[in-house]
């Protein structure tokens, strides 16, 4: 019983991040609006970041800035570095995605996937 409680207490935040990630995935898969899809992708991405950072947390640790005291416990700085890079790359891909959406709006007059698909169907009947 104590093991079970320990396991739940040690894993619940991973579960929460999985649920959060699936919220983002649901938006990406179920919605046809391109801007909304990109926002869903951002939710997905941020949950992965949160997952990584929570892996780096050490109980009783402090932020990884040298305090000069011997025997100080720090949280792991390596996931922080990787996620810093990932955040910046994430904004770059978001920008490209949004630019594509703007371009699609120019060419088709809509950013709704359903509308664009209908257009293709009426233009070229298979």
């Amino acid at each position: 019983m104590a093991d079970l409680i320990r396991s739940i207490a040690g894993h619940y935040n991973y579960w929460m991040f999985v649920i959060l990630m699936m919220t983002g995935l649901f938006i990406v898969v179920s919605r046809g609006n391109l801007i909304k899809k990109i926002a869903g992708l951002n939710i997905f991405q941020t949950s992965v970041f949160l997952f990584y950072i929570s892996m780096g947390k050490v109980t009783g640790g402090t932020a990884p800035v040298n305090t000069g005291r011997a025997g100080e416990v720090y949280s792991n700085p390596l996931p922080h570095v990787l996620i810093l890079t990932a955040i910046v790359v994430g904004i770059a891909t978001t920008a490209v995605g949004l630019a594509l959406a703007v371009r699609i709006k120019e060419s088709y007059g809509s950013i709704e996937e359903d509308v664009i698909e209908d257009m293709h169907r009426t233009e070229r009947p298979a």
């Binding site: 951002n42 949160l50 929570s54 402090t62 932020a63 990884p64 922080h80 955040i87 920008a95």
Partner: peptide, 23 residues
């Protein structure tokens, strides 16, 4: 809260700021 202060800076500036402006 998870001790990642540098990541928090970047997320607040890039995710909360630049990303919102781009959107």
């Amino acid at each position: 809260a998870l001790d990642a202060v540098d990541v928090a800076f970047t997320e607040a500036a890039v995710g909360g700021g630049i990303s919102t402006v781009l959107m």
